[in-house]
Simulated assay, not measured.
Amino acid sequence: MTSPPKVPAADQTLRVLSLLAASRGPLAASMIATRLGLPRSTVYHLLATMQEHGFVMHLPEERRYGLGIAAFELSSAYARQEPLARLGRPLLAGLVDRVGLSGHLAVPHGRDVLYLVEERAKGAPALVSDVDVRLPMQLTASGRAILAALPRAQVRALFPGREAFVNLHDAGDDGIDRYSKLRSVLDATSTRGFALERGSVTPGFSSVAVAVLDHRRWPVAAIAVTFRDGEVPDDRLAALAAEVRSATETLTVRIHGRR
């Protein structure tokens, strides 16, 4: 028989976070209470405390709760401790050798992506997407690939208003300054099967990216390649994305994720 937890509040908090992390979208407090067999009053107290510390985000219009930015930062902290970087680095090096373009591996970090690995192609210029650099998620191909794989409600929670959007310059091809524009870009990403950005990060450069999914099909990272505008014709983008997807699928398998 399993002994009761020595710290019930800590146990309950972790169970709530684990349930939210395993769900494809935000949940109502009543549903959380039912699934975990906890009193509703206890669940509301736990959620209020976690919301105060940023681990849970309340969506008042939907009366649901989802993971907050602090929870994403925990995930990013795990990634920064090297498992993804160590597993992804040789795959990225092989991808760069095959396509002759610079590549990088990035993970979500709040509303940003954090670059863990960069492999520069021979003779390629230095890029802004260097190791440990953070960039606004909606501007990068890596970030768009990650966002497109998230539930819509989670994306909306990350970008609740215009103040959540940051642009680096004149916004390139499709400057995103409100949720409707972001949703349009993410829907196109899902339809296309890979993310694409043109000049949003660095004028004159474009990138394609594909997300890496964990065992819940939750996007934990993305692999991207970057090239000068015109270096890859439009009719070759799908073939290039297929090479990127092959690398992401291998990394997905290595972290016991789902392709």
Rank of each mutant, 00 (worst) to 15 (best):
G54H: 06
A79I: 03
A28E: 15
V225H: 09
A9W: 13
D187G: 05
P219V: 06
V185C: 07
H109I: 04
A28N: 07
Q138D: 05
V212M: 04
D235Q: 11
A33Y: 15
L116G: 02
V96L: 00
V16F: 10
A124N: 00
A126V: 03
L20I: 04
L91S: 01
R228A: 15
A21L: 08
W218D: 10
T13W: 00
L114E: 05
M1H: 13
E163H: 12
K122P: 00
D235S: 12
S3G: 04
V212R: 08
V7E: 15
L101D: 02
H58A: 03
Y115K: 09
L47C: 05
R35H: 12
A221K: 11
L46C: 00
L150Y: 10
R35F: 06
A171R: 09
G66L: 08
M31F: 08
L237I: 10
L19D: 09
A126W: 07
A238T: 14
A141Y: 01
A70S: 15
A21Q: 05
V43R: 08
Q81M: 07
S129A: 14
A93F: 03
D173E: 09
Q154T: 15
G172L: 04
T13L: 02
I255P: 03
L59D: 15
R258F: 07
A106Y: 14
H53C: 04
A126F: 05
A164T: 02
G175W: 09
A188M: 09
A48I: 00
I69M: 14
R15N: 08
F55C: 01
P125F: 00
K6L: 15
R254T: 11
V99F: 07
G175E: 11
R178L: 00
G66N: 06
Y179I: 06
L19E: 07
K6I: 14
S75V: 11
P125N: 03
L91M: 09
P233M: 00
A33F: 14
G110R: 09
V253M: 11
R156E: 14
H256N: 12
E82G: 12
S30P: 00
A48F: 08
A121R: 09
R134K: 15
T34V: 12
L186H: 06
S207L: 06
T252W: 12
V210C: 15
G68R: 06
V131D: 02
E231C: 04
L27N: 02
E231L: 09
G54Q: 04
T13Y: 00
S206W: 07
G257R: 09
A28M: 12
A85T: 05
F165D: 02
T42H: 13
D214A: 01
G199F: 03
P203W: 07
A145Y: 10
V96F: 01
L158P: 07
T42C: 11
P83R: 01
R80E: 13
L196D: 01
A85G: 05
L36N: 06
S200H: 04
V128H: 10
G257Q: 06
D132H: 08
P108D: 13
V43E: 00
L182H: 01
L92A: 01
G110L: 07
S76D: 14
K122V: 07
